[in-house]
Design a protein around this nucleic acid. Structure first.
Length: 245
DNA sequence: AAACAAACCTGTGCGC
DNA sequence: TGCGCACAGGTTTGTT
């Protein structure tokens, strides 16, 4: 309830029908028949779970939404970084400016090669921060940024202004392929099982990670280099110093 | 302007 | 066994 109140959330959700389940980047968007929308962001540790009414709830269950089919939707979030808010789509620019400022979502929106060229600026900013920049391109997080760059053998610290046309084509291809493969596999559920689907099930894409979480291992792609890990601003980056250039 | 770091929190796993 | 520390999927805010 970072930008709303308990009362406003309860009022906005009581007696309404959820018309759809949509998404932009990492923001879940649920249009309601009241004309408002429920936005949920899970941040690092949030979960939305569907459960039988009365089932024992996990610790850190902050919101329980009772549905009319007898099931409950839980919002669970140990670290409390996540949030939910009911907003008026006509006033989205003031109520949820971060959602309004998102760049194109490569899965949800048209994302052509020229769309990628549009977000690559002639600066020395590195490719890793570019991929994590939600106002530039929406939805890519730390795991997939590393996996995308590894697939196309691009170093995370390669400056944006060093990309030639071939590099841009490669990066565009890798964004589509890695995200599609990860979605097919149900996402990446790491050891602490925080990322799970509505029914609490995990994904399997963590088994296909080539660099994320593999620091110190030999590169699965080239077989020559070792996977390196660096930390900047509390975020870790993984890459192969031999095959990523 | 851009590049960092800190802050927001709890839980887990490790070395000692 | 217990303590302290590093670290975790993200974003915002503040400081160089």
């Amino acid at each position: 309830m970072r930008r709303t109140s308990r009362e406003a959330l309860i009022h906005g959700l009581t007696g309404v029908r959820i018309e759809a389940a949509d998404r932009r980047g990492k923001y879940l968007l649920l249009p309601l028949d009241s004309g408002d929308e429920l936005m949920i962001h899970l941040r690092m540790s949030g979960q939305v779970l569907l459960a039988q009414r009365g089932a024992p709830r996990p610790a850190h269950t902050h919101v329980v939404m009772e549905l009319d089919d007898g099931t409950d939707l839980w919002f669970v979030d140990p670290r409390t970084f996540g949030e939910g808010v009911v907003f008026d789509p006509d006033r989205a620019a003031e109520q949820v400016p971060d959602v309004e400022n998102l760049g194109p979502d490569p899965i949800r929106d048209e994302f052509s090669l020229s769309d990628l060229r549009r977000i690559v600026r002639p600066t020395r900013r590195a490719l890793k921060p570019l991929l994590l920049d939600q106002p530039a391109i929406a939805g890519i997080g730390n795991i997939y940024a590393d996996e995308i760059l590894h697939r196309r053998r691009l170093r995370p610290d390669r400056p944006e202004n060093s990309l030639d046309t071939r590099d841009e084509r490669r990066l565009h291809e890798a964004i589509g392929v890695i995200l599609a493969a990860a979605i097919d596999a149900g996402g990446s559920t790491l050891g602490d099982a925080q990322y799970v689907d509505l029914m609490g099930g995990g994904g399997s894409y963590q088994d296909d990670h080539r660099v994320y979480g593999r620091a110190g291992e030999r590169c699965l792609t080239c077989g020559r280099g070792w996977i390196r890990r660096s930390v900047s601003g509390g975020r870790s980056t993984h890459w192969c110093a031999a095959c990523q250039r």
